[in-house]
Amino acid sequence: MSGLSTIIGSRISTAVEVNKLLVPASSIVEHLRGYCEPALFHTDGFGEFHLSKSGSAFRAKYKGRYFLFCTAHQMKKQRFDHDQLCLLTGDETKIISSHRAIFSEGTADEKDDFDCNLYEFTEVVENGKLSKSCWYDLCGEMANRPVQKPALVCTIGFPGYRNEIDYTNFHYGVSPNAVWGKEEEPSVKGRLAFKPNPRIDFSPDGMSGGPVFGIELRDDKPKAFFAGLLTEATKEKFHFIARSRMFRLIDHALE
């Protein structure tokens, strides 16, 4: 958070607009963290604790529909099926799976390059099994699909080095990391990228699928917006898929 005030200066000394809410600058990471989840999967073979983790995920809503984004490679790496993806309920004693998966249309090469899956949780939200809070509202951004040039970029995810499941004690201590940076030229085709600032000293493995937010200045007032989904990351550079491509999945879901 110190980098936020350093880079943008006095123009961000009060609050940041997020989904039409004004959030104190000192609380922006905590607020954005509410839209992020570890990507959990229901798996057999672990006694009474049937959970595995593979990366991170982003909770979003649009026109009364509730969705979870993650990357495709998170699932391919561990050979998970789509019906294994799940979310913890509010009391964290039960898990809920989605009722629908939405995929990219196109050739195999296009799908591999896209690296994004979408899952719908509208039914379990509407029947009260999942809360309607903590879903990022995309209604104001679906109509403005190109990504604005941000003054600062932030991603939040759940790196593996501090998010291990304790199968002995049936416990999973969720511990996210936030990484700030400034946009730079990507090294991966079909991606946008930013360079961490300050530099990070940990492996970002496990952060794939986490949301990337940008902060722009409008009339000297800071406003956060959803910029995309983290796909490939190293200590030196974080790549992400642009939101304009991701929104096509929502278009497909609404057809």
Rank of each mutant, 00 (worst) to 15 (best):
residue 3 G to Y: 14
residue 154 C to A: 08
residue 203 S to F: 03
residue 174 V to T: 14
residue 182 K to G: 00
residue 94 K to C: 00
residue 210 G to D: 13
residue 45 G to L: 07
residue 220 D to G: 02
residue 98 S to Q: 08
residue 183 E to K: 14
residue 44 D to I: 01
residue 183 E to G: 02
residue 110 E to D: 12
residue 222 P to C: 07
residue 107 T to R: 08
residue 236 E to S: 13
residue 219 D to M: 10
residue 88 L to W: 10
residue 23 V to K: 07
residue 110 E to R: 03
residue 131 S to C: 02
residue 14 T to M: 01
residue 135 W to Q: 08
residue 151 A to Y: 08
residue 25 A to L: 04
residue 3 G to S: 06
residue 42 H to I: 10
residue 112 D to G: 00
residue 220 D to Q: 14
residue 66 Y to P: 03
residue 22 L to G: 00
residue 238 F to Y: 12
residue 106 G to Q: 05
residue 68 L to M: 12
residue 129 K to E: 12
residue 203 S to I: 02
residue 202 F to L: 00
residue 200 I to A: 03
residue 150 P to R: 05
residue 246 M to E: 12
residue 38 P to N: 11
residue 39 A to Y: 10
residue 240 F to E: 02
residue 174 V to F: 12
residue 43 T to K: 11
residue 150 P to N: 07
residue 132 K to T: 14
residue 190 G to R: 04
residue 44 D to P: 03
residue 226 F to L: 15
residue 166 D to C: 10
residue 1 M to D: 13
residue 189 K to G: 00
residue 217 L to T: 07
residue 123 E to K: 15
residue 181 G to S: 02
residue 204 P to H: 05
residue 117 N to W: 13
residue 222 P to E: 04
residue 92 E to H: 14
residue 15 A to I: 02
residue 173 G to A: 15
residue 33 R to Q: 15
residue 131 S to M: 01
residue 227 A to R: 08
residue 221 K to R: 15
residue 133 S to T: 14
residue 224 A to E: 04
residue 47 G to K: 07
residue 14 T to H: 11
